[in-house]
Design a protein around this nucleic acid. Structure first.
Lengths: 249, 249
DNA sequence: GGAATAGTGTCTCTTAGACATTATCAG
DNA sequence: CTGATAATGTCTAAGAGACACTATTCC
């Protein structure tokens, strides 16, 4: 069977050419603040505006395209260990006519959770990319404000019932560091004592390394025990966000 | 700015032509069984196999394309009230090279929750479409087995924390009918008494109409009070599925 | 010593779920 | 009458969250 009969009844005027791209909402935590990777646009439209990194899909899976774009913009090389600990998942697809003024573009958005990565200044492409605290990421190009908002909501929800907070930390971490991840993503302080007991009570969330930090905290306090991610893929019971009575309607 | 400069650096050999389609996982409950709308394929590839309904995206939003495909296959007309109560949401996008043997096809999958709809035999297109209990929907064309599995998991999860079970019922329903929706989707019987009290305890899930059914149940029992969907968009606290200790790892 | 943090203990309130009970209706 | 269903009541165990407290370390 050839392409011609596949396109039987296909009238090009009914089905305009469609371009498929990927856009990446890459999140990390820098200086205790949840930050997103943005690129400065040099060309029209939206020249001078910031946008999510992204580009055309080549002969590769959609996930591979997203990882490639992320690597290009951060200057890091996939497979060299830098991006090994990045969690990548598909977010949603945005394809409204007119979202790009030039032509019909359907964009598959991906969400990436990364441990603290270096500021991308090395590569040529990466020179125009940088991390921005999410509350300062406004007025993005195209419909990227909406995509970012959807990505943030997904990230906040995922922390509740999956162990993905560990994707923002190094391979070993303290319970306090994990709590700071939750605080940064949710934008709320959490009760240290209750959080500590809760995390340890969820089977498979974290497992002890038997070691402790070499020193206490910067502002005092005892040495903390070190943990690594456990084998759970879902948290049961979940760590629910502090209840907003009114977020329901 | 024209399309040419948009495609600057665009080498057609690097970026093969991509077709964008929508596929719909339409779920309903028939005879107490969760069922999915399938179409019989008449052409290669996968001639004789069943597939999810779908087709090319035209000059419309992706959601409009999904609703249009659903309308064409069921023989129902959008805007005529038939499809008004259908809940539609984007599921995920599938775009692996090779998922369609003819050309690169990126398919945006949608998930539809519908109250019991008539068997589609009316329209011309619809003649080859029918509802199939989900446990009998195997060996579908392309990667539609995977898409269906993803859709089912999404549906099961959504019943936990959203009031979408009411999308499977008529505008007025009894608590028992609602419980049967949960039982059909989750594939498990639920304790009638606890379910009843739980549903009424969640603010905004259902609201009483003040009426009751005209008759008791077919096999006896008192008349049941009637309810309609409330204004909650999230269930708080959620109705969690019976715990599978082992579904976590 | 003073301040900050790690980790644990205690108490209360809410919820899930098992089970029981009463009332109502079909056959 | 018998059996099934609707609706409510009771009890227990688990978990969330508020608060208190001790131990350890930095400055």
């Amino acid at each position: 069977m050839d392409e011609a009969s596949f396109l039987e009844g296909y009238d090009p005027s009914d089905y305009p050419a469609v371009a498929v791209t990927v856009d990446v909402v890459a999140l990390t935590i820098r200086d205790g603040r949840l930050s997103v990777l943005l690129v400065e646009r040099g060309e029209q439209p939206f020249a001078g505006h910031r946008a999510l990194p992204g580009g055309f899909v080549r002969e590769e899976t959609l996930g591979e395209a997203a990882l490639r774009e992320l690597a290009e913009e951060t200057g890091l090389t996939p497979g060299a260990g830098d991006l090994e600990r990045v969690h990548l998942e598909q977010l949603q697809t945005y394809g409204n006519p007119g979202r790009d003024p030039r032509m019909r573009v359907v964009s598959v958005a991906y969400l990436a959770f990364a441990p603290s990565l270096p500021e991308p200044t090395a590569g040529s492409d990466a020179a125009r990319a940088y991390w921005v605290p999410v509350e300062e990421a406004k007025d993005l190009a195209f419909d990227h404000d909406e995509i970012l908002a959807d990505g943030l909501e997904r990230a906040r929800a995922k922390l509740e019932y999956t162990p993905l907070a560990t994707a923002f930390t190094g391979p070993e971490f303290t319970i306090g560091e994990l709590r700071q991840v939750y605080a940064a993503v949710w934008g709320e302080e959490l009760h240290a004592g209750n959080f500590h007991r809760k995390v340890l009570s969820v089977p498979g969330f974290v497992e002890s390394t038997g070691e402790t930090t070499a020193k206490g905290g910067e502002r005092g306090g005892p040495r903390a025990k070190l943990y690594r991610a456990g084998d759970a893929r879902l948290l049961h019971p979940a760590l629910l966000r502090p209840t907003r009575e009114d977020r329901v309607r």
